[in-house]
């Protein structure tokens, strides 16, 4: 049962990701990316971390993708490019991707550390362990958390400065 649900989510994820890369219109691409991100959130739920799934939907689908769609519609660049793919880079790019895929596949098949982890049969975290997670986040990871907030503030100010038109 769980395997069937997982296979369904994984298939939709990969098809949506292919749509992102193949689609001619950037708006279609953005919508396919939204579908893909929601499916990834579903995978997070299957992995026993519902908090992260909610965060994924709030931040990615709710904020980031809406921002991207706003920019696409504001810039009025909807006319589809006649040439979707880079001309000179097609063959080297495909060779690089094939090499990358082969390496990843080889690592997945033959890594002995990976088989150690997967045969370890540790119980999957149920219920997310949200209390433990927040305790660890605000004790052990307090400094990275603060740094992240400063980075978000810098990004906010930077985006405003970059997009402001010159008024003098």
């Amino acid at each position: 049962m769980e395997l069937g649900i997982f296979l369904f989510f994984a298939t939709v994820t990969i098809i949506a990701a292919l749509m992102v890369v193949i689609a001619r219109n950037p708006v279609h691409s953005a919508l396919a990316l939204m579908v893909c991100l929601v499916q990834v959130a579903a995978l997070f739920v299957l992995l026993g971390s519902p908090f992260l799934a909610a965060l994924q939907i709030f931040v990615y689908v709710g904020a980031v993708m809406v921002l991207v769609l706003f920019v696409i519609m504001m810039l009025d660049v909807r006319e589809a490019a006649r040439v979707r793919f880079l001309q000179g880079a097609l063959i080297p790019g495909l060779v690089t991707l094939a090499l990358l895929g082969a390496q990843m596949l080889l690592l997945l098949i033959s890594s002995d550390r990976l088989s150690f982890v997967s045969t370890n049969q540790a119980p999957i975290l149920k219920g997310g362990g949200l209390e433990q997670l927040s305790k660890t986040m605000f004790t052990d990871y307090l400094l990275p958390f603060e740094v992240i907030s400063v980075i978000l503030l810098v990004a906010l100010v930077g985006a405003i400065v970059l997009t402001r038109s010159e008024v003098k």
Partner: peptide, 15 residues
């Protein structure tokens, strides 16, 4: 790999 294909092969900056 699909994401890397999009970065390496597509021409549109948004994609």
């Amino acid at each position: 790999i699909i994401g890397a294909a999009g970065v390496l092969l597509r021409r549109n900056l948004l994609i």
